[in-house]
Design a protein around this nucleic acid. Structure first.
Lengths: 353, 353
DNA sequence: CTGAAAGCGCTAACAT
DNA sequence: ATGTTAGCGCTTTCAG
């Protein structure tokens, strides 16, 4: 395995150029020669080193992937989707995670760039205001964003605004009037912003008053007293919570249980992400679903399109359809008209596609 | 960014060798020169290409990671642990997944090897009988296994036999006598075998008869009729199920619910993995926990030790301590003595450490 | 159809 | 302290 093209050439009795051709353009070499070279390759268990090729300035067949974390299955699923296509097409993946940290984002991109990746698939905290992406636009490599919901850059996501809007409308159709949105500490991300905007629009459209998102500490064992106060006190307490992601929704559900609030009788819960695991909860978690594997695969295809020179079709944001999973965590409030709830079937906004 | 060491040299008015030294051994160059070179580096936004270094035969600073899948949080967590240390130490990770497929395992290892990774961290289906690992032992690169529980090779895991033994003993201490083990379709893995052996030993030691593991289709929506028949019929039906992993346990819980069997009143459930998510279920899933992040980090450290030439300490299997999470999915059977349950505190077998 | 040689970006002797 | 040069493994003109 430490054998090089030189060894093969010597073993076969030809020049390294012929060996190279035998590998990369078999039809240009004499069949007899070809056979001998192949024999030598087998005998020496030779595998051409990508390093040589890469250095030679050709394609490195390397794609960088930058994700916030793998602790959230959303990203693990995306990566799974990417990996599927990548390995089928003979590309290698170089992975870096950022923990939502801007400095680590910068470092990851620089490292990958230095490694001469041919393309980059990434999820950043906030795509619109990201100077690094401007740099990438300026002098490569080509990239595609995942889950960053922006019109200004090549990306694959769902329409977060619309998705949240649909979800909250569904809560309203179930008779809820006091609906609060809960967000993780990462309220600064572009998707969190857009989900809140969707929430606000749905509320206003129904003549209700949206509230700012309430920040919840993700890693805490129980819900903070200040948060609980918002949820359980008085006649004005919310009857439904829209959580900006499923992991958060699960933590909140546990917190509520510990606070002796029943889901969904005392509080309805709507998550965002559609994690498969949510369905296994009791009651099964209602959630707005994103097709993560599909997002990963679509991001890959767009990246390949861009690398192939197809800038026109692949330069803008692509919104994949979201789904609405109506689990057991949503109760209807007495007297509500449910007629409004049906008929809204989760289409992406066509102006974004 | 497409600038090379040559460009910098030209810009600064020195030779490429001086530039190289300025980067790799700053103290050996004249401070004034150094300043000029650095200025040029900044001006051109030059970052040395790892490719050149790698080809030069130095360290590639590349580590390959081979995992069955990222859909199971167990592996995502391991990867997270690895990534933590890797990025802190300036290594890059190349990731490949195998979907438990032997051919893909082979392909992944060959690809990574061709890329000249300095080391490999992997989880394979069955470590003991794996010819590829013998090849790796023979001519590198160095590797460490994760979650493969074998004495014969460098690995980091828990003591699966002992862990299953502890867990099943706990079930027995709760008064259960008819305990069945359920396994995913991957019953062929080394860990599944050892978990079953642990189950069998605990049963026998209590004078009970172990049964072969019952295979369950992971991806099915509901439990197969044939499986349900095993679980729900007659007076000899099991009162407790030991599931070979948490994902399986969750699927089984849903299946039981649909079959109108209550957990834990009608059936107790014990999982394996200790996924954080299991605690959010209702009732919270009892499970044997593996410290996945820690396993990833330990694997990294062993690999680094081996690369550093420390073969003695890092060449054998390391078993990290498992934990026993007693969730709400386990009910006591009337008349059981619980005295036996306490006192067993999840230590790894000292002969393995 | 095959070989010789240049060069990708870099490091490390070896010279100066 | 700095420059010159060879060479890592490979692909690709350019000659034969």
């Amino acid at each position: 395995m430490t054998s090089t093209i030189k060894d093969v050439a010597a073993h076969a009795g030809f020049s390294i150029a012929t060996v190279s051709r035998a590998i990369n353009a078999p039809h240009t070499v004499n069949p007899v020669t070809l056979a001998k070279v192949r024999e030598a390759i087998d005998a020496l268990k030779f595998r051409p080193s990508p390093l040589g090729r890469q250095l030679r300035g050709e394609r490195t067949r390397l794609i960088g992937v930058v994700l916030p974390t793998l602790a959230n299955p959303v990203f693990a699923e995306c990566l799974q989707g990417i990996d599927e296509l990548a390995s089928a097409q003979g590309f290698r993946l170089m992975l870096m995670t950022t923990q939502y940290d801007a400095q680590r984002e910068r470092h990851a991109i620089e490292t990958l760039r230095a490694q001469r990746v041919e393309g980059l698939i990434l999820t950043v905290a906030d795509a619109d205001t990201h100077p690094l992406l401007d740099e990438l636009d300026a002098d490569g490599p080509l990239y595609v964003l995942m889950h960053n919901d922006t019109k200004r850059r090549p990306s694959v996501s769902v329409d977060n605004h619309r998705a949240a809007f649909d979800g909250v409308r569904m809560l309203i159709a179930h008779g809820h009037r006091r609906i609060l949105m809960l967000a993780g500490t990462l309220a600064a991300s572009d998707r969190a912003r857009q989900r809140h905007a969707g929430y606000a629009q749905a509320m206003q459209q129904a003549g209700l008053t949206p509230a700012p998102a309430l920040e919840v500490d993700f890693n805490a064992e129980a819900l903070a007293p200040s948060v609980l106060a918002h949820l359980s006190t008085g006649p004005a307490r919310p009857t439904a919570l829209f959580c900006s992601n499923d992991l958060l929704a699960m933590v909140v559900m546990r917190g509520l249980r510990e606070a002796r609030l029943r889901v969904p009788q005392d509080m309805s819960i709507l998550g965002f992400d559609g994690l498969a695991m949510g369905e296994l909860l009791a009651p099964p978690l209602a959630s707005i679903g994103t097709p993560n594997g599909e997002i990963g695969r679509a991001a890959w295809q767009r990246l390949m399109a861009r690398i192939g020179g197809d800038y026109a079709g692949a330069s803008l944001g692509l919104a994949l359809p979201h789904t609405l999973r109506e689990g057991g965590t949503i109760a209807a409030i007495a007297g509500a008209s449910l007629s409004e709830a049906s008929g809204q079937r989760c289409m992406p906004d066509p102006t974004r596609a």
